[in-house]
Amino acid sequence: MKLTRREAIAMGLGSTMVAMLPLRVSAGSHGAIMAFTGGVEPGEGNITLSAPEIAENGNTVPVGVDAPGAVEIMILAMGNPNPQVADFKFGPAAGAQEVSTRIRLAGTQDVVAVAKLADGSFIQTSQNVKVTIGGCGG
């Protein structure tokens, strides 16, 4: 079958649209990570993010992060209007680099935890959380 120009353009447009489909990622969410790390792309490491696979209520989603040896941990919600969720700095009296809290997720998205280790390097992990009812009031 010969591909007409019209069909080629339609295919091009179609694939561009599929590529742009939300996957809810807000503008600047990667930028927020870069701002935290000073431009360094975080690597893999010993950091665990606990979040439910499906959150019934986007207004209160329990999340936990554990990153032994971390000095600071940042949690981001890549699809929220503002990706930053929380930043934890651990002091000398911290018992472990482990925290839990509850956050708002506007919709199904990736939750990312980035940790700054004592040696200045950065590691990250992420988990996709499906949200049935969005929690940013919008």
Binding site: V61, A77, V85, F88, K89, G95, V99, I103, C136
Partner: peptide, 11 residues
């Protein structure tokens, strides 16, 4: 022990 910055996404 800990110093946490909270953003609007905290419940």
């Amino acid at each position: 022990v800990i110093d946490m910055t909270m953003y609007p996404a905290i419940s």
